[in-house]
Each structure stands twice: as C-alpha cells, then as structure tokens.
C-alpha cells in the first residue's frame, strides 16, 4: 500500500489539477470575506467573530463548494487512468484491483483533508486581515475539528461518485451527479429533510446544525448507508469489469 500511495502522489507531480483545486478550496473563504467587506461597508460598527466566520465558511464548503470540488477531484483521480489509457498498465502489474482502488481512496482522503486545511487557513488569514474578534485556542481547535469531521464525511460520500465515474468512464456524469447533490443541498437548507439527505447531513453532523425532527444518528446512518452502498457497488463493478 505504501508503494501504491507513493505512485499516486507521484502521478500528481506537475499536475495542474492540484493548483486548480487549491483555487477551488479558496473560493468559500474568499466569498465569505467579500461578504464581510460588503457588510462592513454597509454597517461599519458590526463586529464579526472568528467562531461565526469559521462556521459560515465550513457551511459553504460542506454544502456548496466542497461537494462540487471534491466530486471533480474524485472524477479526476479515478477517471484519469481511463483517459490517459494507463489502467491497462496498472492492471498488468501484480497489484489487485481492490488495492489500487483503496490507494486512490487514501489519496483522495489526503487531498480532501489538505484542501479543507487550506480553506481553514484562508479563513484564518482573512480573519486576521479583517480584524475578526474572538480568536482563542478553543475556537481554533474546535473549528479545526469541525472542518476535519466535515472533510472525512464528504470523503465517505465520494464512493457513489467513484461508482458513477467507473460506470460512465467520463468526467461529465460525475460532475452532473455532484452538481445535483449540491443543488439538493441548497434546496434542503434549513429544512428538516436536510438531516436525511446524505450530502446535506454532512453539514448537520459536522456543524452540529441538528434539526429537532430527526436525531443526529439518522444523519450519520444516511451518510454511512450512501457510502457503503457506493463502495460496495464500486468494488463489485471494478473487479468484474473488462478493461477495454
């Protein structure tokens, strides 16, 4: 697995996609900061705390930019072997298909966590620039924890996207799939069903945005069910499919 992970990292050397994803990860903090500047220009006396800033940015990442961006990364990581016609080379090496799959999943997790930390870092820096209040060690640790929980949960939800990628062997269906998930997130914001739809449930769990109608366990189960179903479908399909 170490060798597989090493090769996955090597494949990203000089890849423009990493830089593009960093720009994508900066989108939510930048938009939040623009919103802050706008508010300051209208109501100069209003103060913004780090706690609110971290919460809002994380919410935007989990419900909007992250769902879409991580979907694009997933499509890139898993579809590039088809696009660059390298899968046939990897599978004529004595490496099992399942090991290959898990090494890519591990790479995806590292990438998502890195982008999450970049989002957090931008939020932190913009807070310094904007002079946000309430910067304490507790706020830093708590927000980092929430960001990382959100990242792991969104990572778990990458498996249905991987299945769509393998099935269609194309970027477009995966992007459409994640765009639909993102639009559904938007439609369900502040509604009780947000706790049951796996992608919006990530925000419910990670940001403790619980709804009174459904216990948080339902949200966790919804995420796990989608993740396990996606993983099972992916493993079965990938192991059974012919490499043309």
């Amino acid at each position: 697995m170490v060798n597989l992970l090493y090769t996955e990292l090597l494949k990203l050397k000089r890849a423009k996609m990493f830089l593009v994803s960093v720009i994508g990860a900066a989108a939510a903090p930048v938009l939040m900061f623009i919103g802050f500047l706008n508010m300051k220009s209208e109501k100069p006396d209003t103060s913004v705390t780090y706690e609110i800033s971290f919460y809002n940015t994380n919410m935007y990442v989990l419900l909007l930019s992250g769902t879409l961006l991580y979907g694009v990364i997933t499509a890139y990581l898993f579809n590039r072997e088809y696009v660059e016609d390298t899968l046939k080379n990897l599978l004529t090496i004595p490496v099992s298909r399942t090991s290959l799959l898990f090494s890519k999943l591990l790479m995806l997790l590292i990438w998502i966590v890195a982008l999450t930390l970049i989002s957090w870092g931008f939020t932190f820096i913009f807070g310094l620039i904007g002079g946000f209040d309430g910067l304490t060690i507790d706020v830093i640790l708590y927000s980092l924890g929430r960001y990382l929980i959100g990242a792991v949960l969104l990572f778990l939800l990458s498996t249905p996207s991987i299945f769509v990628t393998f099935w269609f062997k194309n970027y477009v269906p995966t992007i459409i799939f994640t765009a639909i998930a993102t639009m559904t997130n938007v439609a369900l914001v502040d509604k009780k069903y947000s706790a049951l739809f796996p992608w919006s449930a990530v925000h419910v769990v990670a940001n403790k945005a619980y709804v009174p109608e459904y216990p948080v366990l339902y949200s966790v189960l919804a995420i796990l069910a989608a993740s396990i179903a996606g993983l099972a479908a992916t493993i079965i399909y990938f192991n059974k499919s012919d490499i043309q």
Partner: peptide, 22 residues
C-alpha cells in the same frame, strides 16, 4: 497493449518509476 498509455505530466523515468515501485 495497443498504444502505450503514460502520465503526460511526468518524465519517462518517472513513468517507469511507477512500474518499478509496483
């Protein structure tokens, strides 16, 4: 198998390194 597929963002040696490691 048919045309050789490679990672175009890597050098020839880096592409071979992937195979060597695996």
């Amino acid at each position: 198998v048919e045309h050789s597929g490679f990672y175009e963002n890597l050098t020839g040696a880096e592409n071979l390194l992937i195979n060597a490691r695996l």
